[in-house]
Design a protein around this nucleic acid. Sequence first.
DNA 1: ATTAGCACTTGAAGCTCAAGAGTGCTAATG
DNA 2: CATTAGCACTCTTGAGCTTCAAGTGCTAAT
Lengths: 367, 367
Amino acid sequence: MSLDSERLQKLTDRKKLILKAVIEAHIETGEPVGSKLLTTNKQIMLSSATIRNEMAELEEMGYLEQPHTSAGRIPSEKGYRFYVDTLMEDYQLTASELSLLNSLLSGRLSAMDKIVEKASSVMAALTNYTSLAIRPRPKKVVILRFKTLLLGDYDFLLIMITSSSVVNTKNIRTHQPVDARQLELLEAALNRFMCGVDINDITLPMIMQMEIAAGRAAPLVNFVIKCVYDFVSELNDEIDFDGVNRLLQYPEYSDDMELLRDMLRLFERKEDIINIVAGGRRDATNIYIGSENRVDEMKSSTIVFKTIMARGRPVGAIGVIGPCRMDYPKVVTTLEYLTGHLSDIASENVAARLPLPGDGGTDNNEK
Amino acid sequence: MSLDSERLQKLTDRKKLILKAVIEAHIETGEPVGSKLLTTNKQIMLSSATIRNEMAELEEMGYLEQPHTSAGRIPSEKGYRFYVDTLMEDYQLTASELSLLNSLLSGRLSAMDKIVEKASSVMAALTNYTSLAIRPRPKKVVILRFKTLLLGDYDFLLIMITSSSVVNTKNIRTHQPVDARQLELLEAALNRFMCGVDINDITLPMIMQMEIAAGRAAPLVNFVIKCVYDFVSELNDEIDFDGVNRLLQYPEYSDDMELLRDMLRLFERKEDIINIVAGGRRDATNIYIGSENRVDEMKSSTIVFKTIMARGRPVGAIGVIGPCRMDYPKVVTTLEYLTGHLSDIASENVAARLPLPGDGGTDNNEK
DNA sequence: ATTAGCACTTGAAGCTCAAGAGTGCTAATG
DNA sequence: CATTAGCACTCTTGAGCTTCAAGTGCTAAT
């Protein structure tokens, strides 16, 4: 009937108000929300009976669910999604939260990796969820220059300067003595054939050419190639979690050992979550609620994350993982505050010479 | 009475046999062990009544405990301690366990840090407890040589070669242009005053002397000193845990959220466990049972660990953490097998040139 | 010295029952 | 005609109770 279809098509303002109230109450308490509780809400000037009717329709429309007949309602994933997309309001950071955030942001700048990790830890502390920090590694690396340095009769240092501002050094020990002249030959051969080459494009003919060019140093070429491959194989995005123990605050996890174990495994495997984050948008706050996650173990959890950009390139990402019943306003506000300011800081770092002592611009090669 | 004191002084062989049986049964099942169960043990040819009497005395002596009157007995910490010290027998590794261990040990050798981490993961898989891997960092670092490398108008690379086979490189960005001549001056000044110096012994006068010696490159000296200090401050022992989720297999943890949370926090803090391991003996398998741990959160857990030594110096440590009711024979055997072989491998690596391609001897500077 | 036998203790599991929370429906109301 | 008061109904939760099984300590017999 046209009445039904109309009724179930679009949310009236009153329905939105009630849905919002249900969700926020549930997020706070974790309990199903009944009609009676909502009558205490100042915004809703309705009797419990009217609210009951509205909630029944909201359930019919798929925004709410009932754990069992005599319980209140809890939000469905669709409910959370709608809340996140259109209902929720900005959270106002408290003075103490702001001061914690700013003490992180105004602190001594060191390597970006460290900042990202620290930011994730602040995130966990402020939101009370498990936080994550990702430091991305470029998948395309071009060799810019090789440099060698003799350390001893059997040892030399190989320095590889690549695009992506990463420098790799490797301490190589040989089983034949090496001398300075040999290293010169090696260096020359490497620089002649490998400069500007993508690491993944190294071919066997190139290696053979280099061995010829290296002359007496030919046996060393293989060592170097091996180092190069080791280097790329280490270039996986790195992820770290902070505040894993905080999951236990939420009955969603502490009452469900299986789920908890799944989460711990997920955190140890790392891979799945890296993939989730890698698949996200770079220009927005990503929120995946429950089964919106393709990963099975995340089916009853929510992940919220955002990429930190510096001059158009991602330099990291932070986020939180917790129950679907998550304090979205607070999480999103905190996350955007942090990533916004970190993006600015990182951009300045890369863009211009800072009029500070060089620490702001240093960038070491630790992985 | 003399009879009592005699009775309670030393364990008869029969008491030892019963104690051992109780402990092993409890380790396996996690349940309190009753006298009846022990009559099924082929080694013990006694009636349940006799066993009861013996168990009562073992309890009086402090080796066993009774959760409540009508339950069987569980081992006390003193009981576990005695078991570990004198009762337990060697565990025989199964063929599949051996093959897993050996596939790790005979695999391609790469950086020691990686091997230790992998070993820890194997440890977790074989024993079903949470495992830990520690890579120690030397606290005394002596500078051997500095080397610089010009990268661009505003960038240069600082290479610091230190004792302890660690090379540190730092990509420094300046706010004033630098040229090759300046770097030469810098390098000469650094090498003249800092070679052979312990990093912790750098004094202000030395810095001032260097600035004078560096001439036009004086402003760069401060950058370098800062890098040096950053470098030492990063030299903390590193620890990683594997198989944290395995704790949930044991009711000791899965039935006690508080304890579980304490453990997760411990794993995130890292510090406490690093300290425990740092305080252990280097030449033995260390076993700390329950309250033998000074750390409060470990009061109901056991940690077993052993250091991997290469030519007299520790190059890492691995171990496991689990309930006091731990399969000590299996853990100890596996741990000693691994650390023994790893020590050999590491010693060879450092000691002699291997007749292999250089990979066995490479040693990169990733932290 | 060992063991069979037995009374006793205690926790775990299952069962019932009342309380409480929340619903949906109906009829009354402004 | 939207809203609401009222009420019967459903379902979970927890307390109290009983029963059951496991295991003990003690005593008396071997």
